[in-house]
Nucleic acid binder design. Structure first.
Length: 774
DNA sequence: GACAGTGAAATTTTT
DNA sequence: TTTCACTGTC
């Protein structure tokens, strides 16, 4: 019945493509060459990628399990999976994962190729830092994070301690040996760090053509979302995953790259067509989210960045109101201002959930919380104090990790120091020495395996030499041993149960085990005995942790999965109960970084002051990243956008005057409505298009700043200049320098044709710098 | 090994 | 201002 099949396909085609615009359709049906979809903010990126998955399955005959889609966050992965499945239920068979969870899965499967045990658990950043401290006792506390960052960076660049190129990244010769000892110690612990989840799979794929071919046969389609956030190592992994027959499609927006401090390489997206020859680019420039007024401001600001692939967003959304820029006095007034806005809108029928208040640093959330509490405005703070970052929870997780892997030194010492009375640095050092002693006697042929002596063995040998600590340590060791054997037994039972009939699960969930561990290890009683107030909430958190384990079976594999889930997806579980407990109509308080991928009808971007946003130490590429952050913030807004700027701010215990963010100077004067009293310099720059009704809280005045309107008018962005020494150039930025208000200078940044960039103060350097063309 | 006192530092953070 | 890590004492 070929005809019937055709009709069915046509219907399916119609169904999938009906709601897409021309570019989106092109992106969905594209095949053959590698494809970069440059998706502007709000351009329907997720719709395209999920439709593409459905399309490949139902119209291209690709089997779901041959499709690999990677994202950066679990949230994005879940959303993608859900939306793809709603378009085509078969899509649930596709592999949709984060880079790291894909790496973890790959690594468990091919562990032996990397010489590690498949039962590894994953060290988070804190654990890795603790390991580094243990491996390098010589490092002082402030050095640890900086060295850790270097190691992380090396891994992000796919460099091992013996890579010849490592010196290019870090010239310090001592770093190589530090990195080497860290790596050895990590391998010895039997665990991996976050970087390894990307790094080791690359290594395996490069060194094992057989595995590489297997993977190439397995995945005929590879899709990457938020490609602008990929780092060098993820790029290398991608290159290994993509075989000659693989169809590769990446989606991203260079203007929304805001994680370079985490290793993201904008260059991955900027040079995609060079990395994958023959690649095509499809731009999605139609914005479905924001009003033209909002889009205009956002585009103007981001256009001040160099090195963009360039997009021109347009929208068919109905015109709305101009964004509002409010000049206020202090953060308290700023919070009041936001509360007023929100209250007034609420009275007109706009619910609280329409609003998001954005800020650069978490610390800024406080004044909003205080004010909103006072005004009875319900709110939710996104991304503060996460459940899995609480001390008692981390400690419990360490305990569970240690039961799984008794060579896990970080977890072991962390628990000992915290919970076993009488054990401190001295005892730990003794155990570590004994551990090394035992392992050197083993004339181990490199990699640690299950039979190698572990920390329980080492502790056991040390106990007789201890005085009062020995008693406690001894009961700790036997408690762990008991937990281990209980888990082993349960696993064996589960195994046999599985053989006989898969349905006959013993009925016990991992919760039972977690509770038992917390009880036996003394963690429960430890936290129950603590001061009433926080002690009881901590004990409660431990119960929540064991509840979270309910979804996993009582077995070794179950514990492994539970821990991996916690390590790679720190959201989950807790959010639900919190949501149930409260109202659902709330204002969102959130950092700019956390807003990526979200949208709100009404957005306030707060703290637009030099030094805070952008932060003071930002120049060059970092400054451009701050500007992209501003762009991300602006493009979250659908209907209304507000900016606030304070003339003074309390920071680090002192009250300091502040100047408007340079980003505010990048907004076209007729693009916003100004409220309050801007500082003289700003008014000058804006040619007094500013300052309508003074509004509430406008009592504040900005200090200092002689009028420099003449200067600012002449030396503005976009003007072509000629310099005696550097030749022709164009003004790419114009702003007032930071520092004390009275000392501020008008500064321009010029990009020369010769390639260089240089700052000038036209006030003093007019003689060697000429304006060629306005 | 526990505790109190001092001094430097203070982002953003998918995993 | 607050926080955390280090230092010296008991």
């Amino acid at each position: 019945m070929p005809e019937f099949k055709n009709i069915k396909q046509d219907l399916e085609k119609e169904f999938l493509l009906k709601n897409l615009n021309e570019e989106q359709k092109q992106a969905v049906i594209h095949e053959g060459t590698p494809l970069l979809i440059l998706a502007g903010a709000g351009s329907g990126k997720t719709r395209v990628i999920t439709t593409k998955i459905a399309w490949l399955i139902s119209l291209k005959g690709i089997r779901p399990e041959n499709i690999l889609a990677v994202t950066f966050t679990n949230k994005a992965a879940r959303e993608m999976a859900a939306r793809a499945a709603s378009l085509n239920p078969a899509a649930s068979g596709a592999v949709i994962k984060t880079f790291h969870s894909f790496g973890a899965k790959f690594l468990r499967r091919y562990a032996s190729a990397a010489g590690i045990s498949p039962n590894f658990s994953i060290y988070d950043d804190d654990d890795s830092a603790a390991l580094l401290r243990q491996a390098e006792p010589g490092l002082s506390a402030p050095q640890v994070p900086s060295v850790m960052r270097k190691i992380e960076r090396a891994k992000n660049y796919c460099l091992e301690y013996d890579s010849p190129d490592l010196a290019l990244m870090e010239p310090d010769p001592d770093f190589v040996s530090v990195y080497r000892r860290y790596t050895e110690r990590l391998r010895n612990s039997g665990n991996v760090d976050f970087g390894d989840l990307i790094h080791l799979p690359i290594k395996i794929l490069r060194e094992n053509p057989g595995i590489r071919d297997e993977i190439h046969r397995r995945f005929s389609v590879v899709l990457v979302d938020e490609y602008q956030d990929s780092n060098a190592a993820q790029f290398e992994l991608l290159k290994e995953l993509v075989g000659p027959e693989t169809y590769l499609c990446v989606v991203g927006d260079d203007d929304q790259s805001i994680y370079s401090f985490r290793g993201a390489e904008v260059s991955n997206i900027l040079s995609f067509t060079e990395s994958f020859p023959g690649a095509e680019i499809i731009r999605l420039e139609k914005n479905y989210r924001s009003t033209p007024e909002i889009l205009r401001v956002a585009s103007e600001i981001v256009s001040n960045n160099g090195g963009r692939l360039g997009k021109t967003l347009y929208t068919e959304c109905a015109p709305g109101k101009k964004p509002v820029l409010a000049f206020l006095t202090t953060q308290e007034v700023e919070a009041e201002f936001c509360a007023q806005l929100i209250k007034q809108a609420f009275d007109k029928g706009h619910p609280y959930r329409d609003w998001a208040v954005l800020y650069r640093t978490n610390a800024q959330s406080m004044s909003f919380e205080t004010e909103f509490l006072k005004m009875k405005i319900p709110y939710t703070v996104v991304g503060s104090l996460k459940f899995y970052e609480r001390e008692e929870v981390k400690l419990s997780i360490s305990m569970l990790s240690f039961i799984l892997n008794r060579r896990d030194e970080v977890s072991f010492f962390k628990i000992l120091k915290k919970t076993v009375a009488g054990v401190g640095a001295t005892t730990c050092a003794k155990i570590q020495a004994e551990f090394e002693n035992l392992n050197s006697r083993e004339d181990s042929s490199g990699a640690a395996d299950v039979s190698s002596p572990d920390y329980l063995d080492a502790a056991g040998n040390v106990i007789p030499k201890l005085k009062k600590a020995g008693q406690n340590l001894s009961s700790f060791v036997s408690a762990v041993k008991e937990c281990v054997s209980v888990l082993d037994e349960a696993s064996a039972e589960t195994e046999t149960a599985k053989d006989e009939s898969s349905a006959a699960s013993s009925g016990r969930s991992l919760s039972v085990f977690v509770s038992m561990v917390l009880e036996k290890s003394g963690l429960y009683s430890f936290y129950r005995s603590q001061a009433e107030g926080s002690g009881s909430s901590r004990a409660l958190n431990l119960e929540m942790l064991s509840n979270a384990a309910a979804l996993y079976p009582f077995s070794l594999q179950g514990l492994l999965d539970f821990l991996e889930h916690i390590r790679l997806d720190r959201e989950m579980a807790v959010d639900k109960s919190e949501e149930d407990a409260g109202v659902s109509d709330r204002v969102t308080l959130i950092t700019l970084h956390n807003t990526k991928g979200l949208e709100f009808k009404r957005v306030v971007i707060t703290g637009l002051e030099e030094g805070l946003f952008p932060r003071e130490d930002k120049t060059g590429d970092d400054l451009e990243e701050e500007r992209r952050l501003m762009y991300v913030g602006c493009t979250r807004a659908m209907k209304r956008l507000y900016f606030t700027c304070c003339s003074a701010r309390w920071m680090y215990g002192s009250f300091r005057p502040s100047l408007p963010s340079r980003f505010l100077y990048e907004i076209p004067p007729d693009g916003v409505k100004v409220l309050g009293s801007p500082p003289p310099s700003f008014a000058a720059f804006y040619g007094n298009a500013a300052a309508e009704e003074p509004g509430r809280g406008s009592a504040g005045t900005f200090p200092g700043a002689a009028p420099v309107s003449e200067l600012a008018r002449r030396w503005k962005k976009g003007v072509t200049v000629f310099h005696d020494d550097y030749g022709y150039g164009i003004i790419t930025e114009a702003f007032f320098s930071g520092g004390k208000p009275a000392e501020q200078e008008y500064v321009i940044l010029v990009r020369f044709e010769s390639g260089g960039e240089k700052k000038f103060m036209p006030e003093y350097q007019g003689h060697s710098l000429l304006i060629v063309k306005d």
